[in-house]
Design a protein around this nucleic acid. Structure first.
Lengths: 225, 225
DNA sequence: GCCGACTGTCACAGGGCTGTCACAGCCACC
DNA sequence: GGTGGCTGTGACAGCCCTGTGACAGTCGGC
């Protein structure tokens, strides 16, 4: 049974979600502030954290960053504002997913299960996307059983994308993850690498089904149907 | 029935994993610190160790190194941080596998069984890679039945590679495993030894099929098809 | 349908990575 | 002390990778 920590200052929402998530088969601990949340996190070591962004005192982003300094457990951000700024800041502070309030408990539940499943897959050595199989320990990628000769950068790009299947990653994020650069002027660096990767990985590179473009954001690796 | 030693300081995680692993048919001993773990290891001689990295006092890497000085039993590292640094340091300190927390018990169970299976194969006195046969008890390597006169370093390199067939090992890792050095400047040490080994082992040294180069990473011994 | 913004594509030059080799120190063994 | 084999080093060359910038193509909003 997954053990969740819910950090949310609004009493009504917190109590409601706590009840709903418990009913859906999770074990739930709850905190009403960032400080309490961090304390509870250290004491109880949950499997996953659901974290409100707007908190009195330490805000959600900061809580997220502090946890990320030492731990890698999944974090889902809960935000009342749906604008893209929050999403980007949130993901960059290390969250795995975000959900916009008001949220239906079963939507949140679905996200929770998805993120936990993703974690399980990451722990496995190889993952398959259609005919493409990524073997993390051999550091090889095969398609229909044949070895794809990926270059180091292409491989790193694919590995980072595959760590977050279904999640859109901005060029900025990819630049940080794959190239360890901070600033991407308006160069086509990421696009060019994606193009090269597609040429090797996709059946029809001009109509990609694995590595999808998310217009205005970046790219996303689609999980198998 | 496999006998495991679990070394983990967090009471909740330790108890939880102990219970889960017992249910999955393992016999489990548990320790809450590196010191206790080493003591228990010497007393009880488990088949495999599951070892947390972040421990008070002696940390997991150090525990791993100390055990490796005398013993070759499989060790699985448990780490909260998923960044590559830890993974690399972990494998260099002699671990056989690592798992990122939070971990689902059945994922850990799968890893344990995989590592044990691999161990069985390794402990068998000889393994064959195509026409090349490694005889561990005689410490000889033959090709098409003829004895290959490998030098000590070449032999150690081949043995380390063959401990993890199909897994890419970085130059850094190989340096630690084979030479017990810490720093590889930009010397060609590993490459040179690989070259010499290939000259003796491969059919066509310029087109190696056994010891493959993993560009940007290092080398990998390909298991027979 | 038009326009602007965004993305795909490509060729090229520079550079990083690896394979290769000769050589010198070192060690063990005579 | 001599000898021979083993090993690490550094230089070098070649190849492949990679980032860039220009341009074309595409998408979405109006």
């Amino acid at each position: 049974m997954p053990f969740l920590l819910l950090i949310e200052d609004d009493d009504a929402i917190r109590t409601g979600l706590e009840l709903a998530l418990t009913r859906q088969g999770h074990r739930v601990a709850a905190a009403a502030s960032g400080e309490d949340g961090l304390k509870l996190f250290k004491e109880q070591r949950p499997d996953l954290i659901v974290l409100d962004v707007m908190l009195p005192g330490i805000d959600g982003f900061e809580v997220c960053r502090r946890i990320r300094r030492t731990d890698q457990l999944p974090i889902i951000l809960l935000t009342a504002r749906s604008d893209d700024i929050d999403v980007v800041v949130g993901l960059e502070s290390g969250a795995d997913d975000y959900v916009v309030k008001p949220v239906q408990p079963r939507v949140l539940d679905a996200r929770i299960r998805a993120v936990l499943r993703r974690g399980e897959r990451e722990n496995s050595d190889s993952s398959a996307y259609g005919s493409v199989v990524i073997d993390r320990s051999a550091m090889t990628v095969t398609k229909d059983g044949e070895d794809l000769q990926l270059t180091p950068t292409e491989l790193r790009l694919l590995l980072e994308l595959s760590r977050r299947p279904g999640q859109a990653l901005s060029r900025q994020q990819l630049l940080r993850l794959v190239w360890e650069h901070d600033y991407l002027g308006d160069s086509r660096l990421v696009d060019a690498c994606v193009q090269r990767l597609r040429a090797k990985v996709e059946d029809v590179p001009s109509a990609p089904t694995l590595i999808r473009t998310v217009r205005g954001v970046g790219y996303r690796l689609d999980p198998p149907a």
